[in-house]
């Protein structure tokens, strides 16, 4: 009976989604008529607040934004305020989990095996290098702070498994708060020097170089550290309670 009702609800929802996808009114629907101007075009030609140059090529200076990877220039530069909100949600998640799962008895961890003990230092070395590569090259290649931070957190988990002392989440929470504060501080510097929150105050640099798009690079470095610390603190919180459930 329940299942039949659920199927009915799903059919109705399906009809609604279908209608929304095939809405033919201008500006709606998933299959629009060939639209003359997309927002994305001005992101691609780097002409949101200034006139687009006639030609864009790698090595150009004096662009509005120097990130070769347009997706990261959208995430961190044009919509940086959005990303600040996203990072705040991550902070709220980490804090909420810390609140729910606090004050639990620590448990005697199982000793790690030989394979784990010998191989983890080697693996963690490469994981950290790859993670930091991904978030430092966010403005050039696919990736950025979020996947890079997740990789670093995976390394931290491996280390915790092999060393097997119960992790403390306080250290990670402090690191994360510092990263969050510096994110806001960089936004405020932009507000002070250029008149708008999170505005690029460091110049664009040459498109396609490693040392370009300074704002994107610095913010992604901060986001990478923040995400890594957050994920590690979440895992540390869950880890602490494993035995606490039974007692």
């Amino acid at each position: 009976m329940n299942k039949v009702a659920a199927l009915g609800v799903i059919v109705i929802l399906g009809i609604f989604i279908q209608m929304a996808l095939h809405d033919s009114n201008p500006g709606k629907g998933a299959f629009p008529e060939k639209s003359s101007s997309l927002v994305a075009d001005s992101y691609l030609t780097k002409s949101v607040s200034q006139k687009a140059p006639a030609e864009i090529s790698p090595g150009d200076t004096k662009l509005e934004n120097g990130a070769a990877n347009v997706v990261t220039s959208v995430v961190v530069d044009y919509r940086g305020f959005d990303t600040l909100g996203e990072v705040t949600i991550l902070f709220a998640v980490a804090a909420g989990i810390g609140l729910f799962l606090k004050k639990r008895p620590h448990f005697k961890p199982r000793q790690p095996g030989t394979i784990l003990k010998t191989l983890v230092p080697l693996a963690v070395f490469f994981i950290f290098i790859t993670g930091s590569y991904v978030f430092l090259h966010g403005h050039l290649t696919p990736g950025g702070g979020f996947p890079g931070g997740a990789m670093m957190a995976a390394g931290v988990v491996l280390l915790a498994l092999s060393i097997r002392k119960s992790m403390r989440s306080v250290f990670f929470k402090i690191l994360e708060s510092l990263a969050g504060i510096s994110f806001v501080a960089i936004g405020l510097i932009g507000l002070y020097t250029k008149g708008s929150f999170l505005q690029n105050f460091l110049g664009a640099g040459a498109l396609g170089n490693l040392y370009s798009a300074w704002l994107v690079m610095i913010l992604y470095f901060i986001i990478g550290i923040k995400v890594a610390a957050e994920l590690s603190s979440v895992i540390a919180d869950f880890d602490q309670m494993e035995e606490g459930g039974k007692q």
Binding site: A40, D41, L44, T45, S47, A52, P53, A54, E55, I56, S57, P58, A68, N69, V70, V71, L140, T141, P142, L207, G208
Partner: peptide, 13 residues
């Protein structure tokens, strides 16, 4: 993919 690796004229994306 939207990564600028070659030069292009902004009029003809």
């Amino acid at each position: 993919p939207p990564i600028i690796v070659k030069s292009f004229k902004t009029l003809s994306l």
